[in-house]
């Protein structure tokens, strides 16, 4: 009898908080990594304030070396996310936890590495590494903002349709337009041809980010066809429906492109940072 422990009568216990609910990566485990990052950055600031090196705070002091080693370690570990998210090994790891740690520790890194530099900047390979690092962090912040805002818009825009359903609807629209244009004159046929020839989504990154397609044949045909002509009304209706569909497909593509485009900055800058970091460390130890 394993029934008794499963009361079907609603009681206060039935109203317990569910065990598993959706929890975003920032809030992962009640902001565990935010606290850890804050602790790390806070204690670095405290140590920096208490430290009184001569002639001035520098990467070469004891605290400077410590903060530098910590920063370098963080940079290498943070960049390993690229491997982690593609290596689907068994084991009790969660990519969400990694991303959470990546974001919060990355933010802490901005403070820790700047303290390591002792606020000394110049036109050299050391400041280059710092600048690249800040670039990576800022692009990461940009990515986090996009990740917070765009998925909801993506879902709203798609409503209940899927990408596949939208593609199928577009193919259906192609067929309907062709059939509707067949009995019409050359001018209308040419307009429909242009509408069908325009790609649903722009080919260039710029047009994808804008969510627009230059010289969209559907829009042009709608403008060119006079309203109120009963013979052309069915064609206009089809074109109007198509433009609504295209707007939805283009918004979908735009949002998806924005969700990815920041990585085009974040990842190459990370590679450059790793190179500059190596140059910084080598130069510090061999040419100081």
């Amino acid at each position: 009898m394993n029934a008794p422990a499963r009361p079907s009568a609603p009681s206060t216990t039935a109203r317990r908080a569910p065990q598993a609910i959706h929890e975003g990566f920032l809030a992962h485990r009640r902001y565990r990594w935010a606290w850890i990052a804050a602790l790390l950055a806070g204690s670095s600031v405290l140590l920096y304030a208490l430290d009184d090196p001569w002639p001035r705070p520098n990467g070469g002091t004891a605290l400077g070396y410590a903060l530098g080693t910590l920063s370098a370690g963080l940079i290498v570990w943070l960049s390993l996310l690229g491997i982690r998210k593609r290596r689907f090994t068994d084991g009790p790891w969660s990519l969400k936890a990694w991303v959470s740690a990546h974001v919060w520790l990355g933010l802490a890194l901005a403070i820790i590495a700047t303290l390591h530099a002792g606020f000394q900047f110049g036109w050299n390979v050391h400041t280059l590494a710092w600048a690249l690092m800040m670039g990576v962090i800022l692009s990461g912040v940009w990515g986090v903002v996009l990740y917070q805002r765009l998925p909801r818009q993506l879902s709203d825009n798609r409503a209940t349709a899927s990408e596949r359903a939208m593609a199928a609807a577009l193919a259906e629209s192609d067929r309907a337009l062709e059939a509707a244009a067949r009995p019409l004159g050359d001018r209308e046929a040419a307009l429909v041809r242009d509408a069908l020839a325009t790609p649903a989504v722009g080919r260039s990154l710029g047009s994808r980010l804008a969510g627009r397609v230059p010289r969209c044949g559907t829009a042009a045909a709608l403008r060119a066809l006079p309203e109120g002509d009963p013979e052309l009304a069915p064609l206009r209706d089809l074109l109007a429906a198509r433009s609504v569909l295209l707007a939805r497909i283009r918004t979908n593509a735009r949002l998806k492109t924005w969700l990815q485009v920041w990585l085009l900055v974040h990842v190459p800058l990370t590679v450059a940072l790793l190179a500059a970091l190596l140059a910084h460390i080598v130069s510090v130890f061999f040419y100081w």
Binding site: A20, F25, K85, F88, K96, V99
Partner: peptide
């Protein structure tokens, strides 16, 4: 039999995927 449980949930970077 895989340690850590369903790979789809473990590999979700944002916490969007859960199994319940």
């Amino acid at each position: 039999g895989k340690a850590g449980g369903p790979a789809c949930v473990r590999a979700c970077p944002t916490g969007a995927a859960i199994r319940v």
